[in-house]
């Protein structure tokens, strides 16, 4: 649940930081060209400040890129008590461990929910 919220927040911040980064790079290129043409040292100060801002934004972007928000899926393992045939599928609401399911498709034996668990898928 909060994973969705975190994904949404990450997406929003990545967009904001990317826009900022693009503006900083564009401004830095502009001042670099201006410095190359005019040789005015005040442009170099602006470039320095933009570099610092770029570093800050870049660090935040890298932190967001490193942020891993895991995805999970819940499964149930249904096993035949006679032949051991096993199938893994999504559980239904109200399923529980050792609940009897439909007959085994292989031998017609008794199938029960053997496990219900959550696994990471990314």
């Amino acid at each position: 649940m909060s994973e969705e919220r975190m994904r949404e927040l990450r997406r929003r911040w990545v967009l904001l930081y990317s826009a900022l980064m693009f503006s900083i790079v564009a401004a830095a290129v502009f001042f670099l060209l201006a410095y190359a043409i005019d040789q005015d040292p005040s442009y170099s100060y602006a470039i320095m400040l933009l570099l610092l801002a770029g570093m800050y934004v870049g660090m935040n972007l890298a932190r967001l890129a490193r942020l891993r928000i895991p995805r999970y899926r819940t499964v149930k393992v249904v096993r035949c008590e006679k032949c051991g045939y096993t199938k893994v599928e999504a559980p239904r609401k109200g399923d529980y461990v050792f609940k009897e399911e439909e007959a085994c498709p292989r031998c017609g034996g008794n199938m029960v929910i053997y496990r219900i668990y959550r696994e990471k898928i990314g």
């Binding site: 649940m1 819940t74 399923d95 461990v97 219900i116 668990y117």
Partner: peptide, 16 residues
């Protein structure tokens, strides 16, 4: 908090 949040899924569905 995350643990409690996850427990909502378990208890609303009745999973272990």
């Amino acid at each position: 908090v995350k643990a409690l949040e996850s427990s909502l899924e378990s208890f609303s569905n009745g999973y272990p």
